[in-house]
């Protein structure tokens, strides 16, 4: 017999998102995607396939892209999360606009996040690497050329990361991760 969610009590967790510590009540089985959108009002991460295929829900966790539909919120405790809201006025965002690298825009946050994560890890990636990273995401209404152009324009401009996520609140003693990003 299946047990409904109400059988289990909610727990309160702290997450570090876009440099801020936020506290929220969750069920253990809640996905980070749902917590971001439904509990924290961060609706930039989009629900798409909910199967890890489309990348519309991509966030950055410890400088790596992560599909938030494949991550329990409880796994994100003590990790550094950046959402599209944390990239406001970033170089990559501006270049997506300049190159009209979107049409309906639904997949765009995911593409911006994976592009930004790539540049955080490799400010001057070769074409093979660009293709490999961008292939994690799917757009169904425009082409990929403009997205690549936006990314390459940031690379050429030499301002790969453009903007660090805002850090308006100190961590206030929150436990930190080690250099590999694993929990201490």
């Amino acid at each position: 017999m299946k047990i409904s969610k109400d059988t289990y009590q909610k727990i309160t967790i702290k997450l570090k998102i876009n440099g801020e510590i936020v506290e929220t009540d969750i069920h253990v089985s809640d996905l980070l995607l749902n917590v971001l959108r439904d509990k924290l009002g961060l609706t930039g991460a989009k629900p798409g396939c909910l199967n890890g295929d489309c990348g519309a829900c991509t966030v950055i966790m410890n400088q790596k892209p992560m599909k938030s539909c494949l991550l329990l919120a409880i796994e994100a405790i003590r990790e550094e999360i950046t959402t599209i809201e944390g990239l406001l006025n970033s170089t990559i965002q501006k270049e997506f606009v300049n190159h009209f690298a979107f049409q309906c825009g639904y997949c765009t946050p995911g593409f911006v996040m994976v592009s930004h994560a790539l540049l955080m890890n490799d400010p001057n990636p070769d074409k093979k690497t660009v293709i490999e990273w961008l292939s994690s995401n799917i757009c169904r209404c425009t082409g990929y050329q403009e997205i690549e152009k936006a990314l390459y324009s940031v690379i050429k401009g030499g301002n790969a990361c453009g903007l660090k996520p805002k850090n308006t609140v100190k961590s206030n003693g929150a436990k930190k991760t080690d250099e590999t990003g694993r929990l201490n």
């Binding site: 990348g55 599909k67 991550l71 490999e132 990273w133 995401n137």
Partner: peptide, 12 residues
């Protein structure tokens, strides 16, 4: 391994 799923998914 690099042909399994996609890059972002392979991180998880």
């Amino acid at each position: 391994a690099r042909e399994i799923a996609d890059y972002t998914s392979r991180i998880k």
